[in-house]
Design a protein around this nucleic acid. Structure first.
Lengths: 245, 245
DNA sequence: GCACGTTTTGCACGTTTATGCAAGTTTCAG
DNA sequence: CTGAAACTTGCATAAACGTGCAAAACGTGC
């Protein structure tokens, strides 16, 4: 069992149940609790979980907002570069995720944009904007991802015709492509891909070279990747036709 | 059961009921009351509740839900009476409107409720509640009504089977029935009516005996009306089969 | 092969936290 | 005023925690 693999499994468990317990994980992986605690410490340092006595809990979307305000200069920088892709009069689809929330906060004004999203927190952000035509994608709300998923969401997505998609990422890997922690989430993202002319994904480097259980699309399904990783280590993506920005 | 998780559940209970009882919580979590009291002490130290003899109550209005303050006392009173209609395990549809926002804030906890709404602000309120199965009804967001409307919304509504509908009101009149200011809004409300077994509407008296351009349904389309108007002046409604509460 | 540095893991130690119980105090209702 | 229930405080115990250290595994360069 590789350490990185274990980290992903813990993240999956967090996404599914909202909490993990150190003792349970130690038994499951047949390791000492000390090692599990080290894992949780590592994940919490990246904001991927919140340590509590006895284990850890998943950060709520509300706490992710706080991360935007206080911690993630990188995400703001990513968002600033990402909005450069937007052109006048486009229809844009924004997936859930803290980086995409950051993008939605700084959408340029008066471009006659139509924006669709399945993330209620992005709806809240954009509902203040009278210059944006806002389409809400409904469905079953999932408290862990902060997104709407399910058949209703997929049906609503398939009714759209989108110029530019900002995909939310869970894992990005050269060989596995884009992956998600949840099957319903993966299905919704696939529906988004199928109606979008251009696919962009903004990822912080901690999500690069990681993968989750459920496959969304191969790496060449993404047209543009915005990241803070030095370009030299991304040759595997560029060879597959992905533009790095 | 992690301690932090328990704290979160107590907060949820407080947000829903406005109060918790030490003995009940001790039984529910199978812990001593001492531990519960320590939890409440911890929460109150952070201003998340106010301890009282026997348990705790939600913090004095001013810290937790600022918008709740802007709501008039009448609307809060209406909401308190409206939630009395709710029964365990029901599927509830909540229309947009400030009175309905007030209702959503005080939905009782742990009744296994499924709640659907087309109002993003109500989604935001309920997205904190892990005890509620939340369905988001998407569509075209309208900044004036704060609701989603349009064909997509109506399609999503028609896929539901609802026990109890809290209809948002624009105008209520004995002869004209329920009316709306916007044709798309009226169509969405009609879709809601057609899938709901029981229709309730909470109205402040300033909306009584007024009407708007677009017709939703006649007065007898409403089963229960919650209002602060003296019952004597509502005989026109009761004669049409409307229960006044 | 061998020396070196890094990473991972488990263990021992002392510290902190959560919990229940006992004893004394306060609060509430009648 | 009085009894019961709720509360506070202090204490004991077990579990969880952090830290430092050492052994093992791994890659790297010679």
């Amino acid at each position: 069992m590789l350490t990185a693999q274990r980290h992903h499994l813990i993240q999956t468990e967090l996404a599914a149940h909202g909490r993990v317990i150190s003792g349970d994980l130690a038994r499951r992986f047949d390791l000492s609790e000390d090692t599990i605690r080290r894992d949780l410490r590592h994940l919490s340092k990246q904001g991927l979980c919140q340590r509590v006595y006895g284990g850890a809990v998943a950060p709520t979307p509300g706490q992710l907002h706080k991360r935007h305000d206080y911690l993630s200069e990188e995400k703001k920088a990513l968002a600033a570069r990402a909005v450069g892709l937007i052109e006048k009069g486009q229809t844009i689809l924004i997936d859930a995720g803290s980086t995409n929330s950051a993008i939605s906060r700084i959408l340029p004004a008066d471009l006659g944009l139509t924006v669709a999203t399945n993330a209620p927190d992005i709806v809240t952000i954009l509902s203040q904007r009278s210059d944006i035509n806002l389409i809400v994608l409904g469905g079953q709300y999932d408290v862990h991802t902060g997104a709407c998923t399910g058949p209703a969401t997929e049906a609503a997505i398939s009714a759209l015709c989108v110029d530019l998609l900002f995909l939310g990422s869970c894992g990005v890997d050269e060989t596995h492509g884009m992956t998600a922690f949840d099957p319903a989430e993966a299905a919704a993202k696939q529906a988004m891909l199928s109606v979008s002319a251009h696919v962009a994904v903004a990822v912080t480097q901690d999500k690069l070279a990681t993968s989750a259980p459920y496959r969304i699309c191969p790496a060449d399904g993404v047209h543009t990747m915005i990241t803070d990783q030095p370009a030299g280590e991304l040759s595997g993506f560029t060879q597959q036709g992905v533009t790095i920005r």
